[in-house]
Amino acid sequence: MREDQIKTVLTDLNGRSASIEASALISIDGLILSSALPSMMDEDRVSAMVAAMLSLGDRTTAELACGTLEQVLITGSHGHILIIHAGQEAVLCTIANKTAKLGLLFLDAKYAAQAVTSLL
């Protein structure tokens, strides 16, 4: 039931904007908890990388005295990957194409992270 609710949050997130292509909820140890990723993506590898990226962001933010990490944004030639905490034990990863309006993407991902945090 709870898994279904989390899946619904991710599906809703993907539907909020045409620019959002995929999303996943991942444990801080790099395990997929729930995902709405394209089938050609290797969930196991993606989840490990995303968790590592957030951890590295946490550590870098602290090391550079920038406070508490709020998000990690990776931008490639074809799109964006937004990684944010979803509570203490999970990470929300959202993938958007290049047309995404970043402010809206940040907001949508933040609301989705809050929603899944309440379900974990």
Binding site: G30, L31, E43, D44, A48, A51, A52, S55, R59, A62
Partner: peptide
């Protein structure tokens, strides 16, 4: 410590390679 990752995540990063069988 440098990456801020847990032992479990380190093991996962070391063992989930390209083409690895899917793990839970």
């Amino acid at each position: 410590d440098n990456l801020g990752i847990s032992p479990a995540l380190l093991t996962r990063l070391q063992t989930v390679g390209r083409g690895s069988p899917h793990q839970g």
